[in-house]
Amino acid sequence: MSKDLTTSSIHRQNILNNPFALEKIQEHFDFKGTLFENEQVYTKAKVAELLGVDTRTIERYVKNHTDEFGSNGYRVLKGKSLKIFKLQYVSDTGVGEKAATLGVFNFRAILNLAMVLTESERAREIRSRVLDIVLDVIAKKTGGHTRFINQRAQDYLPASYQEFSYRKLFTDALRDYVDMGGTKYRHFTNLIYQAIFKEDAAEYRRILNITDKSRTRDTMYSEVLELIASFESGIADQLKERSAALERKLTQAETEELFKASESNPFIKPYIEGARTRMASRDLCFRDALHDKLEGYIQSVPAVDFEKFLGETSKNLSERLEQEEVLSVFKRLKDR
């Protein structure tokens, strides 16, 4: 997937949805606008001046990116809002008194425009600086360890502990009810991974560049871990029931049939789709890791995810383990 901001709407939106990066970017550029309705706004003429192009170029880009700019802060003033703007600022902004509408940008919308504007050297410089700031913000927030950014979420530890519990049920069921050698544990674990995110463990580790002895699941998001736990729990029960019905252990082929049936279950399909979208989108945004087989699931990361992994409620694992409420959650899970 192209990382060129002029062509990739997903990469553009990932920056525009990141409130922590936006704050630093706005501080850096400090564009002087007009205070209106509690935010700085900029007329097309002012934006043309800031980006070094003429207003006709601005109008053409607005026409070609109406929906995108509109969702990121560009708006057209008319009626009462325009009347108030004219009364307060018409002499300062050069807006014609007879104008029936007026398009204005906020900072976010200017940044959006600078990301797609190819005719401007100033816009190119802005794009380059923005990318540096975004990388710096994420690195500082995570202490440079984006591989484990998943662990900063408040719901990671409970999900990890729950999955660990169900993992034991799953491996015990493979031991007791499947007639295969020791390779069955890796084989059927990979079938779960392939069912959920279309990759086996080796592929996943290669994409995330995990070359040390770190546990694969230590890098997975809570939603993925919860879905893995659901698979493990469901498969464990089915193996036990099927083995009892046949009064023998299951063959590899019979066990694989159970996995296929679970993967195609319509009740679990929405959860698989959601896990794929979250993993593919977050890994591209936060870890610069592209899951080729999930490229069709990539979306821009919502603002709530930046808060989840970089905001005030996010913490690294060692900080999280010191919290009393986390320890109480573990106790409840242990005693269930």
Rank of each mutant, 00 (worst) to 15 (best):
S318C: 06
A139F: 08
V329Q: 09
F85G: 00
A280E: 07
V301F: 07
E125Y: 15
S230E: 09
A236I: 01
Y297H: 09
A202H: 13
T183N: 09
K308Q: 11
D30Q: 13
G181C: 12
I10H: 02
L250P: 15
S222H: 12
S160H: 11
A229P: 07
L333W: 00
T216C: 15
T57C: 07
E39C: 06
E59N: 13
E325D: 14
V90W: 00
F85Q: 04
F309C: 14
V62F: 02
T101H: 09
R332D: 06
I192Q: 10
H187L: 13
Q154M: 11
Y271F: 12
Y156F: 13
F105Q: 05
R276A: 03
L321Q: 06
V130E: 02
A21T: 00
D283E: 06
K44C: 08
V130A: 08
D155L: 13
M115F: 05
V90A: 13
G94K: 06
S262I: 00
L50E: 08
L169A: 03
I149R: 04
E322S: 07
R336M: 14
S243M: 00
F85P: 01
S314K: 06
D155K: 15
A245K: 15
K168C: 08
Y89G: 14
G96F: 03
D172R: 10
I149C: 04
S9K: 11
A195K: 05
N265A: 03
K86F: 00
S222D: 11
R127D: 04
D132Y: 13
S8D: 11
S262A: 09
I126H: 11
I58A: 14
F286K: 03
S264P: 05
L5S: 03
S318V: 04
K293H: 04
K308M: 15
E119I: 11
I10W: 05
R122Q: 10
K78P: 14
A139S: 10
M115I: 15
I133A: 03
A99G: 07
G144H: 06
S230N: 09
R12A: 05
L321R: 08
S8P: 02
L102R: 13
F20Y: 12
F148W: 12
K46A: 14
S243N: 05
H11N: 13
I126C: 14
V326N: 09
Q299K: 13
I110C: 08
T219M: 01
R215K: 15
R336L: 10
A280D: 05
D292E: 12
R205I: 01
D335F: 04
V47H: 02
K334A: 07
V47N: 00
Q252W: 10
L77G: 09
G96S: 14
L117P: 04
T277L: 01
H291P: 10
V329N: 13
Q151R: 14
A153T: 09
A275V: 02
I207E: 03
S262C: 12
S328F: 08
F20V: 07
L250E: 00
F85E: 00
A303Y: 03
E121H: 14
I192H: 15
S120C: 06
L239F: 09
F259R: 01
R278W: 10
G234C: 04
L5V: 11
L102I: 02
